[in-house]
Design a protein around this nucleic acid. Sequence first.
DNA 1: ACACATGTATCATATTTATGATACATGTGT
DNA 2: ACACATGTATCATAAATATGATACATGTGT
Lengths: 299, 299
Amino acid sequence: MVNLEWYRTFKAIYKTGTLTGTAEVLFISQPGVSLHLSSLETYVGHKLFDRTGRKMIPTEHGKVLFNALVDPLTKLEEVEKNFQRSTEKHVPTISVGMCFETFQITLEQYVSTLPFNLIISFGDYPEMLDQLDKGILDLIITPKKGISANIEHESFSHEKIVLVAGKDVDSIAFKEVLKTKNKGFIEEWLKQQKWYGTTGDMEHLFNFWNLNFGKKPDFRPNYIVPNLNSIVRCLSAGTGLAVVPDFLCHSEIDNGSIQLIWEGDKKLKNTLYFGNRKKTVHHEEIDHIKTLFRKVMAR
Amino acid sequence: MVNLEWYRTFKAIYKTGTLTGTAEVLFISQPGVSLHLSSLETYVGHKLFDRTGRKMIPTEHGKVLFNALVDPLTKLEEVEKNFQRSTEKHVPTISVGMCFETFQITLEQYVSTLPFNLIISFGDYPEMLDQLDKGILDLIITPKKGISANIEHESFSHEKIVLVAGKDVDSIAFKEVLKTKNKGFIEEWLKQQKWYGTTGDMEHLFNFWNLNFGKKPDFRPNYIVPNLNSIVRCLSAGTGLAVVPDFLCHSEIDNGSIQLIWEGDKKLKNTLYFGNRKKTVHHEEIDHIKTLFRKVMAR
DNA sequence: ACACATGTATCATATTTATGATACATGTGT
DNA sequence: ACACATGTATCATAAATATGATACATGTGT
């Protein structure tokens, strides 16, 4: 098996052009460098440098190898810097998992202001929970609590799944229909309208329909757009209906570009939780993000 | 300095959960694994695993470290596979440098059909030439020849920098103006029109104007779009003028959605070259790409 | 053309690192 | 509660690796 140190030495030779220089850079002896290189050359089965008078010139194979490993190797060398036992703080990286739509209307606007690095990861909730436990994620925003003992959940807001419409939709007429309390009428009126949906999940629409009409919706949305925020933007154009979490369109409802026309007979409401490991070295950063969330969600 | 092998061992411990298992996976002894881990722990200054009865449980620091290094480390471990002295061929990766617009109208459509991996790199020509020499690129498409002895150039096509217009532009009128051969008239007529430009370089327009009017253009384009292909698409809508390389809009000119209204009094013409290292292990793949280019450029 | 500066390869030797043997620790099943 | 399976830590020792000294090679400047 190739010794990873050979790679480091190889890269340094490639950069410095001499074994002596490499030795100085890596704080090892020149014969050691020579040894590393010859070991690597033997291993890969190709000469990697042409030894000219003063300089090591990479061969074609050397160039190919170099390109194959510079990027990951450089990144790996960087890792060390973040772990030196030093007093100087380094900028940590926080990984947060949530659904795409939530990110767009909450954190996105603040990303550039964060005093640490951020990785947003989109995925489904059980997977996110697993990754949180494994340490791949540091914080998740989810409507479903997990059961792991290492993870603490904290509710911070609610989402209501509601029926919204563009401002040009005749909500007065719909109110009249609602007043009849006749499920058949209501359903029929709704099915007459133009509906929006997303490529991925129809979960909200299914649940909403199921809760209010006791069955699956027997129609397909007329327009399929990439995500829930696209729906909100489309509705803002004037017409159409969709079932979405209310917090995704608070501002649009407030300024009148979208109407909340029905919260449902039985209301569909989820609690939103923060989830993070109880033990974490990133409490400060996580709290920072939580604060931003609370600010955005409290309107 | 950390020994990169410690990382490999650390990752394996994280994955297997035991030192013994790690030893088997890495073909080293269990005490060796123990040594690597304790060395790494000493170095980073934190315990990385809790030793429970049967399993190594990563500590918070262990999780953070793991996340910091899995990706690059895994990639680095992959490198080895591509260099084993084996008879089985592996899929090579070819790096090609060219300008963004050229890529879009030539290679883009064939990318999925290539029997090798491809990395397209966009940059300026001198830099690309340098990277070609260093082995970071394997092939470049450029209008400027370099001088390095290791690099061979081959002309394969030409580009004419021409004045094009949307189909609704009154080219008959412009022909009349051209007939006057009065530079002032021509310039005036052109400046009356709506012009397109790109965010980045105005080089084509500058050169064209300079060659035909002996000065810099004293107006700014009315519409600034991201790249030359955007210009072509915008012009296809009907109106507007732009100076672009002809090969970017061959098909649009042919089908009449764009008019080539002036090649200039003095023609602005570049030769396009392939550039690659004379010594390369990727001749076959490079020839494949060259063939595609010749096919696209010959119309 | 020469001395010199710069750089690589090869030794014997020193140091580091890995190993096998084994003691010790902790869950598991009866 | 006990024996046993599974796993880690710690030795002395073996093997691998790194080092300093030095020979050798090749450009550079006078």
